[in-house]
Design a binder for these strands. Structure first.
Length: 891
RNA sequence: GGGCGGUUAGCUCAGUUGGCUAGAGCGCUGCGCUCACAUCGCAGAGGUCACAGGUUCAAAUCCUGUACCGCCCACCA
């Protein structure tokens, strides 16, 4: 600091209210400028790596991201301070379908579609969008204080990552794990693309079950089928019944006439039909239902696709061609009814698939797509969690979900009929039917010698690039030093909603392509909801914007609150007012510092030099600090973030501020003894600095600000200052017990004062009776604490037999404490107060007496517990007797 | 049809292997003298731990069942 005047003498200039705005901006810039977030291959250090779940470039970040990224930042900062080479690798995801959708929506505002622009121009537009939102996301992450290595920012469509995507496709293709084929897939008519099974959201809806009469050829009979999608009958190519169904046995092999289309269709036996459901006869539409498709294969049925890509009916639907599927449904039903072929309509509850991205009803459709065979990839991904190589937290909750999905995994449809994404690296020879998967089109076709290639039009599922994220971002397929050093990563923090989409697939790809798990621990954080427990969403308008909260309360306050409200993997319900908690805590820290600054010349924390001068309060707070250090670390290691933060919060506010700072005030005044003064100051500074170290992962900004002020600018940064170690030799259960007695005496006196309405201005005279010599000495030695904090003038021990007139009484441990209140005391109030206390004790005593007279308890419970209970009972009894005796004296 | 989570103070939630008088924050009540802080301090009120059984010396905690809320999975036409 400049000149002879320390800034600590000018503490009057420190504002009473903490203003985070400049502080946060300043330190973030400083950290980046100093390169403190950079991580490089360093053989002297162990790496600790997290790759960010890359946010979609569809929009700005919401509170869920803020929560998720806060957790990641906490672990990165924690490990960095512990001396790891901590890499947090940031980036964003192109989010194929989602991003294409938002850009198309933008275009629609000017009445344009992507087809008006053409593929190239449209993709150009999406890149512009990506620039804008990608930057916004990075801006937001920085604002939250995320300590990412920004030099390493990646995007899933970067050249490097795109190369990795193609490489993976080619390897899997050549291995026979990727194939192209015609199967029933989930088609979103609005997005105009196939989607994977995981992208379908099933919702319970109330629909109808229509019972339709199909005439049996050459008879007067009808076969009645029930369907929830009558329009699909236009594509029917059979009716199926259970082979053992007595009702229909005689019809098997006969022919039915498909109404409206007048097509002859066979009646076939198939065990898949459930005779109990509907009529036990099923219309079979192989092109529009996965089950029917299977039946069709077994019976060699035709597949008639009656739909266009936008879910209007095509020419194969005859008279219904051109109609939308739902209009056609109405018309089909009406026509059937007109012909007397509609038997009845029932209400029917069933689940209907909707597009995960646009909520449109999914249409199962026979279509030629690309798939990945998953069974083989899934096996090792199950093994690594079963043998404990990869841990999921909280395991009880999600492990089963993960395993269950992998055990029942189905092939992954990876082709998308979109423009935004990684183009499938497959080339078709235009001269023959040759098809090759490769990075670039080959020179010549090895089959026909042709040179004319055409690339597949489709792009890949967006997750086909994200599942490579932990290693594609580190340079794969090159064997880079980064990859060798930082992979496998250590921790993945993400939401449980993408276990299938992302987590499980990353495990599979990591094991397949790196022969190693992608991360050792997966922490699944809860979902941020609104006050009523609803998911935050744009459509509900109940979202809370992180940037708004930061502007209003500060990033520290936001982070603090989110973590305080979270418990392991549990969802958190959030209201804006909750952020006051974080703001208030920052302000508390600020003022604790302000108080210290007022009393400091230079902030020295050489507290160990003054060991000979420690008082009880000093030994106590140092002991509490060590235990807090242990608790903060242990809870972090166990993914109990809120317990970790609560521990340091409670220590700082309710032990350090409420008690320690209050207790040392007399020692800080100018005319106090110099050594005593320095003892207290150095300890206070040490506690303050250490608390900042412990708090830094949670509230990085204010902790740095305070830390720097306390270091007089000598330290580089709290970002890299060493994480505190608990000093076992400073832990003292004795000091803690003695301090507890002192605190309890103070609280008891305060309670009497408050209950008896003793004005603060009047000082009390405390008398106490106590048989225990050691404790008596303890009380006398620390009487200055009681005097100071309980507004007591004198403390005096009196003989056990002495009567104290007109005094309020309390029993703390085995000491009777009297506050004589001559003239002030209202006998009735005091009687009442004691009566209540006695009553409470009587209840406790009754319970304990019963317990201790129970033979079973005495013999079966651990002796330690029995002993504890006995002691407890003795204490209660002693306390009650003392109170009763004093109550009697009042009469 | 399976699986998972939740039900504890007016509100939002802790309570880790069963064992002190079930805790915190907010809110509420009373009082605020004091050289950090009213975004504060001190004191206090407030809970039959969803319900019913069971196991145990002992249950908020373990088991069984019920109710309600929420999520996930499953091809029931």
């Amino acid at each position: 600091m400049e000149g002879s005047e320390s800034k600590y003498r000018q503490s009057a200039d420190i504002p009473k209210v903490y203003d985070p705005e400049d502080v946060e901006e300043h330190w973030y810039q400083e950290w980046v400028d100093k390169g403190l977030f950079n991580a490089d291959v360093n053989s002297d250090k162990k790496p600790f790596t997290i790759v960010i779940p890359p946010p979609n470039v569809t929009a700005a970040l919401h509170m869920g991201h803020a929560y998720n990224n806060t957790i990641q930042d906490i672990y990165i900062r924690y490990r960095r301070k512990q001396g790891f080479e901590a890499l947090w690798l940031p980036g964003t995801d192109h989010a194929g379908i989602a991003t294409q959708n938002v850009v198309e929506k933008e275009l629609r505002k000017t009445n344009q579609s992507r087809f008006d622009l053409g593929r190239e121009a449209f993709v150009e537009k999406v890149w512009e969008w990506k620039e804008q939102y990608g930057n916004r996301i990075i801006f937001q992450l920085k604002k939250m204080g995320c300590s990412c290595d920004w030099r390493r920012e990646r995007f899933t469509m970067d050249e490097g990552l795109s190369r990795a995507v193609r490489e993976v496709f080619i390897r899997l293709y050549n291995k026979g794990l990727i194939y192209k084929g015609k199967y029933i897939i989930n088609w979103c008519p609005r997005c105009g693309t196939a989607i994977s099974d995981e992208e379908v959201e099933y919702k319970e809806v109330t629909g109808h079950l229509w019972y339709i009469k199909y005439p049996v050829k050459d008879s007067d009979e009808f076969l009645i089928v029930a369907t929830t999608r009558p329009e699909t009958m236009l594509g029917d190519t059979a009716i199926a019944v259970h082979p053992e169904d007595g009702r229909y046995k005689k019809l098997i092999g006969k022919t039915a006439i498909l109404p409206l289309m007048n097509r002859e269709i066979p009646i076939v036996p198939d065990r898949q039909v459930d005779p109990e459901f509907g009529t036990g006869a099923v219309k079979v539409t192989p092109a529009h239902d996965p089950n029917d498709f299977e039946i069709g294969k077994r019976h060699n049925l035709r597949s008639i696709n009656i739909l266009n890509n936008d879910a209007t009916l095509n020419e194969r639907a005859g008279a219904y061609a051109g109609m939308d599927r739902f209009a056609a449904r109405k018309k089909v039903v009406a026509d059937l009814e007109a012909q007397g072929l509609l038997l009845k309509i029932e209400e029917h509850h069933h689940s209907v698939g909707h597009c995960h991205r646009c909520d449109t009803v999914i249409e199962p459709l026979l279509s030629e797509q690309w798939f990945v065979k998953m069974k083989e990839l899934a096996k090792p991904a199950i093994e690594v969690v079963n043998d404990g190589r990869l841990k999921i937290h909280p395991a009880e909750r999600w492990l089963k979900t993960y395993i269950n999905w992998l055990e029942n995994i189905r092939d992954w449809c990876i082709s998308r009929q979109l423009w935004w994404g990684h183009r499938i690296p497959v080339y078709y020879c235009q001269e023959c039917d040759q098809m090759v998967a490769s990075q670039e089109p080959p020179e010549t076709c090895e089959k026909c010698g042709g040179h004319n290639w055409k690339q597949d039009e489709d792009v890949l599922d967006t997750w086909f690039s994200s599942w490579l994220w932990p290693f594609s971002t580190l340079g794969w397929p090159e064997e880079t030093p980064d990859l060798r050093y930082f992979y496998p990563t250590d921790l993945l923090v993400t939401g449980p909603d993408i276990i299938f989409f992302w987590v499980a697939r990353m495990v599979m790809s990591g094991l397949e392509f790196m022969q190693e798990i992608p991360f050792r621990d997966v922490y699944l954080n809860g979902i941020v909801r609104d006050q009523k427990g609803r998911k935050m969403s744009k459509s509900l308008g109940n979202g809370i914007d992180p940037v708004e909260i930061i502007d209003k309360f500060s990033a520290d306050a936001m982070r603090f609150t989110l973590i305080m409200l979270s418990s392991e993997g549990q969802d958190i319900n959030l209201a804006e007012s909750h952020f006051e908690m974080g703001r208030n805590f920052s302000n508390k820290i600020w003022n604790a510092y302000r108080f210290l600054a007022m009393n400091l010349d230079e902030p020295e924390d050489n507290y160990l030099d003054y060991e000979d001068h420690y008082q009880l309060a000093d030994r106590w707070i140092l002991s509490r600090l060590q235990k807090t250090i242990e608790a903060v670390g242990a809870n972090l290691d166990n993914f109990r973030l809120n317990d970790s933060l609560s521990a340091v919060y409670h220590f700082f506010w309710h032990e350090f501020c409420d008690w320690y700072l209050e207790l040392i005030k007399p020692r800080l005044v100018q005319d106090a003894d110099a050594v005593e003064r320095q003892t207290a100051r150095s300890i206070a500074v040490h506690i303050m600095k250490t608390a900042m170290d412990l708090l830094h992962p949670y509230i990085p900004f204010i902790s740095e600000e305070i830390y720097q002020r306390l270091c007089s600018g000598e330290s580089k940064s709290i970002v890299v200052s060493a994480w505190p170690d608990a000093k076992k030799e400073l832990i003292s259960d004795k000091a803690e017990a003695e301090m507890t007695l002192t605190q309890n005496i103070i609280s008891a006196v305060r309670n009497i004062r408050s209950e008896m309405n003793v004005p603060p201005s009047s000082k009390a005279e405390l008398k106490f009776k106590l048989e225990d010599e050691a404790k008596t000495r303890l009380i006398m030695e620390n009487s200055h604490y009681v005097k100071q904090l309980a507004r007591v003038e004198t403390i005096e021990q009196i003989p056990a037999g002495e009567k104290v007139r007109a005094a309020a009484v309390a029993v703390v441990e085995n000491a009777e404490i009297f506050i004589p209140l001559a003239g002030l005391i209202d006998l009735e109030v005091e009687k009442n107060r004691l009566g209540k206390e006695i009553q409470r004790l009587e209840g406790q005593i009754a319970g304990l007496t019963k317990k201790l007279s129970n033979e079973q308890f005495l013999t079966r419970a651990p002796q330690e517990v029995v002993k504890q209970e006995k002691e407890k009972l003795d204490n209660f009894r002693e306390k009650m007797e003392k109170l009763k005796a004093n109550l009697n004296q009042l009469n």
